[in-house]
């Protein structure tokens, strides 16, 4: 893993972002309606609508509008929201921070729980615990995150009253890390369920594969203790495909946040983006896409780097 390789991977992030923003810009333009229509709602009489469109610059062809957006964006100016006339950069920055908190916590939960479950199941193939993990993993993948979110919110928030089911902090007098932690539990579980399942399954099969690999047999034959075989050989090598998987799961997680954030009123970038699409507030959508694409691209690079560092076969 040379510096040149890292630089090359990072350089690829820029065209990725460019592609993401142009594709999204185009797609929103393909969808019927625009910000002027969204602002006026049913009150969009022909003249008023045409005038507002003209004033907002929405009549220009989309490449012109995109070029205008891009020329400002490269200078760090993401423009102002059409609907609320607030600076997009500030809106996105703040909401992204909240999504990052939720995302990182969920991913950590997914990795720790998923690895533990998968590894234990893999080492105890066919046992009761193995079957339990398989069932859990299948359900985790099968249940859509927004449904699980509603279910958790209803059971633990509404029905039992144990945990808050909306927002990041209490609306009155909240704000500490303990308050944040309480608000994180339900959305983090809803979000982590699918990646837990994927990671557990992958870890299980990877563990099974590694357990019967030649080098493990060799290690045992050398007379190494069972715990050192398990941790030093099996676990470490079983981890390699998981690292790669994590990069992908981070992406899945980012897309699922949009729905989970809406259910739990989590003030993140997912909520912001959904809202901006529904109101055709293009500068805001673009800002969100840019932030999400950048996060995803950087996580992928990081995953590749970790993969390269762990896998001896990738060393130069």
């Amino acid at each position: 893993m040379s510096m040149a390789w890292v630089a090359r991977r990072l350089a690829l992030v820029v065209p990725t972002l460019f592609a993401a923003t142009i594709v999204v810009f185009m797609m929103i333009h393909l969808a019927p309606g625009d910000a002027a229509q969204a602002m006026l709602g049913p009150m969009a009489a022909g003249d008023t609508l045409a005038k507002l469109r003209q004033d907002l610059g929405l009549n220009d062809p989309w490449p012109t509008q995109y070029a205008r957006w891009l020329s400002r964006a490269v200078q760090g100016d993401l423009g102002r929201s059409i609907r609320q006339q607030l600076p997009v950069a500030a809106m996105v920055q703040e909401k992204f921070k909240n999504t990052a908190i939720l995302g990182i916590v969920s991913l950590t939960v997914a990795v720790v729980v998923g690895l533990a479950l998968g590894f234990i199941a893999g080492l105890n193939r066919g046992s009761l615990i193995d079957r339990f993990v398989i069932v859990l993993a299948s359900s985790g993948i099968a249940i859509p995150s927004f449904f699980l979110a509603l279910l958790l919110s209803y059971i633990f928030g509404t029905r039992l009253g144990w945990l808050p089911s909306s927002g990041m902090y209490e609306l009155q007098g909240g704000g500490g890390p303990g308050d944040l932690a309480r608000h994180l539990i339900l959305p983090a579980i809803a979000l982590a369920a699918a990646p837990i399942a994927v990671v557990a399954r992958m870890t299980r099969s990877s563990t099974l594969e590694v357990t019967s690999a030649d080098y493990v047999r060799t290690a045992r034959a050398k007379g190494l203790s069972e715990s050192s075989v398990t941790l030093g050989h099996i676990f470490k090598n079983a981890l390699i495909p998981i690292i790669h998987l994590l990069g992908l799961q981070a992406g899945v997680l980012l897309s699922a946040t949009a729905l989970v954030e809406v259910v739990f009123s989590w003030p993140g970038i997912g909520s912001l983006m959904v809202d901006s699409i529904l109101t055709r507030d293009l500068p805001v959508t673009q800002g969100c896409v840019l932030a999400i694409a950048a996060a995803y691209a950087l996580v992928s690079v990081a995953a590749d780097m970790a993969h390269a560092a762990l896998d001896p076969r990738m060393h130069d």
Binding site: G157, T158, P164, S165, S166, G167, L171, F264, S265
Partner: peptide
Amino acid sequence: LIWKPIIEEAARFNQLMSGE
């Protein structure tokens, strides 16, 4: 007065029931 946006229909109703 604290105004809280809760876009999802069921979530809004749930939060009224739980007293949030």
